[in-house]
Computed example of a mutant assay.
Amino acid sequence: MSNANIASAQLMMQQLNIHSEMAKGAISVTPNPRDFGLQPPSFTELMKNKVAAVNTDQNASAALMRAVDTGQSGDLVGAMVASQKAGLAFSTMIQIRNRLVQAFDEVMKMPV
């Protein structure tokens, strides 16, 4: 056997052992972030990150469309896909906002 085959066989055995330990319950499949000193992000941080991601998609789409319009790029399909992706991300963000406002209104209407 060559060294590559031996290394491949050893890697496969290690993976099998890990899966075997996971099946026995000896290894936790979902580690707790607090075990590593990490705190899960807050709702505010998650929303800021998603709004920033939607903004990035919108800006990238606009730049691609501008490049196609000015003749700097011939990738019309890529620009259209980016535009659709940005539009879908924005629409999803608006739907999430609407649901949050609706939930807030329902909570405010609850009797105390």
Rank of each mutant, 00 (worst) to 15 (best):
M47A: 10
P40F: 03
G71D: 13
R66D: 12
M13Y: 09
K48E: 09
I27D: 05
F90N: 10
V29F: 06
A103C: 03
L38S: 03
I94R: 10
Q102V: 10
R97W: 03
L11E: 12
S2A: 11
G37H: 06
A53Q: 08
D35K: 03
G78K: 08
E45R: 05
T92N: 08
S2P: 07
Q95S: 09
S28M: 07
T56Q: 11
I6F: 06
R66G: 02
S73R: 00
M1K: 11
P41Y: 04
G37V: 05
N59V: 05
A23T: 14
S20L: 14
T70C: 03
E45N: 04
L11G: 07
I6P: 01
M22F: 06
M65A: 11
T30N: 11
F104M: 10
E106M: 13
K48Q: 15
Q14S: 06
A62T: 10
G25A: 09
F43A: 07
T44V: 06
I96M: 06
P111F: 15
E21G: 02
I18V: 12
Q84E: 10
V107H: 07
A67L: 02
P111Q: 15
S91Q: 15
N17S: 07
P40Y: 07
F43C: 04
I6D: 12
R34W: 02
L11Q: 15
V51G: 00
M1I: 09
K85L: 06
T44W: 01
A86M: 01
N5C: 02
S42D: 06
E21L: 10
G87W: 02
A60I: 07
G71I: 06
Q58R: 08
N17W: 04
S73A: 04
A23S: 11
D57S: 12
N32P: 01
N98A: 11
M1L: 15
M47P: 00
M80C: 06
A23N: 14
S73V: 00
E21R: 15
A23R: 15
Q72G: 02
P33H: 03
F43H: 08
L100I: 13
L16S: 14
P33Y: 03
L88Q: 14
S28G: 07
M13Q: 12
R99W: 03
M93F: 08
M1T: 13
R34Y: 06
S20P: 02
S42H: 03
L88S: 12
Q102K: 14
K109Y: 07
P111T: 15
V81A: 05
V54K: 00
A79Q: 00
H19Q: 14
K50Y: 01
G25E: 04
D57N: 11
E45P: 01
P31Q: 05
R97Q: 09
R66L: 08
M65S: 13
P111W: 15
A82F: 01
K85T: 11
K48M: 09
F36G: 04
I94M: 08
Q10L: 08
K109F: 10
D69R: 11
R99T: 10
A26I: 05
